[in-house]
Computed example of a mutant assay.
Amino acid sequence: MSSGYSSLDEELEEFFFTAKSTFFKGGSAAKNVKRDAAVEETPKALTPQEIQQKIERYNSKVKNCLLMKQNDDGTYTGFIKVHLKLRRPVTVPAGIRPQSIYDALKEVNPADRTDRRTSFYLPLDAVKQLHISSTTTVAEVIQGLLKKFMVLDNPQKFALFKQLKKDGQVLLQKLPISDHPLHLRLLAGPDTNFLTFVLKENETGEVEWDAFSIPELQNFLMILDREEKEKIHQVQKKYDSFRQRLRETLKEMDSKLT
């Protein structure tokens, strides 16, 4: 995915998706995908007085206790929510499940375990709330999320996006790692329907195999092999059922003719 905008109107062609569509870009069908090559201007720096005014306006709209607070040095702290929309399995220490989403995790397969690591699929609707500073960068947010979920994967495999509405469409824009999410939250206001942060795979157009460890690559191979066998089984089951119905129909026709 580029750093420009792209439509979220994407659907899988089938309910069952293989590891090809899970691990590699282009595995799912994208419909009405639009890209905006225009680069959004960097938000201008605010004076301490402007920051105070915006924080007061922000807090007046907050419907919960998640307020922003300005510090004496001019920085400020607050909360952001990040939606995890990861389609690839993540790697965590073997035998350990992240406590924050213990019940939501779906383990890939006992066969995918290594001596030290285990692969899991994180639920697509997982949401994590972070308390950060105005100096916290996108890179630090990604690292913090991985640490909270005890994910061992290279942070460079992930990217933080801002999801917003533009011209009646829901759009995603990849954020530079040096951006400050809390500043964007302050400028947009507390309404998450207008601006939402999303963690996704860092799609670069090609798979960067050097970023994966040997155990991760072995996991991918085992997952591919298992999914291939499952797909073959589904096809065989489908045509076995069709063959049985065909035989029953032919037998019924023969009985009528005799």
Rank of each mutant, 00 (worst) to 15 (best):
P43H: 06
E41G: 03
Q129C: 14
E228V: 10
T42Y: 12
L130Q: 05
H180E: 10
K20Y: 15
I132T: 04
R185I: 02
E14D: 10
G74L: 14
P155M: 05
Q163M: 01
V235D: 12
V92F: 01
Q156K: 04
F220Q: 02
Y239F: 01
G95E: 07
T196D: 14
S60P: 06
V198W: 00
R88G: 04
K251D: 14
P110K: 00
T77I: 04
T91V: 02
F17L: 14
E14H: 01
N32K: 15
E216I: 00
L199Y: 05
N193I: 01
K237G: 08
L175G: 00
I232C: 09
K147S: 15
R185Y: 07
C65A: 15
R116W: 12
A45G: 04
F24C: 03
V39E: 07
F212N: 04
R87G: 12
A188R: 03
E140K: 14
S119Q: 08
V207S: 13
T22W: 02
Y102N: 11
S178E: 06
H180I: 06
Q49T: 03
S3D: 09
K20V: 11
G78N: 01
I177M: 15
Q49P: 05
L199S: 07
D179A: 10
V170H: 02
K256R: 08
K61C: 13
V138P: 06
S28M: 08
L66M: 15
K20H: 13
F79N: 01
E50A: 14
L164G: 09
T118H: 00
S3E: 02
K148G: 12
G74K: 11
Q70G: 07
S100G: 12
H131V: 02
E56M: 04
L221M: 05
T204Q: 01
I214D: 09
L171P: 07
A37C: 15
L67C: 14
F24R: 12
G168K: 06
R88E: 11
I177Q: 07
I214G: 09
I51P: 09
K128C: 11
V82Q: 03
V235W: 11
F17S: 13
R247T: 12
T75C: 08
P155V: 03
I223T: 07
A188W: 00
K31N: 09
Q218F: 02
K238A: 13
H131C: 07
K251P: 13
L105D: 03
N219T: 02
Y102V: 08
Q53C: 09
V138M: 06
L217E: 02
M150W: 08
L182M: 05
G26M: 06
R35F: 03
K165Y: 03
Q49W: 10
E230N: 12
Q143N: 14
E230D: 00
L145T: 04
N64F: 02
R57S: 11
N64T: 13
I177S: 04
E203K: 13
R35E: 05
Q143M: 13
Q169H: 11
G4F: 07
K63A: 12
E40Q: 06
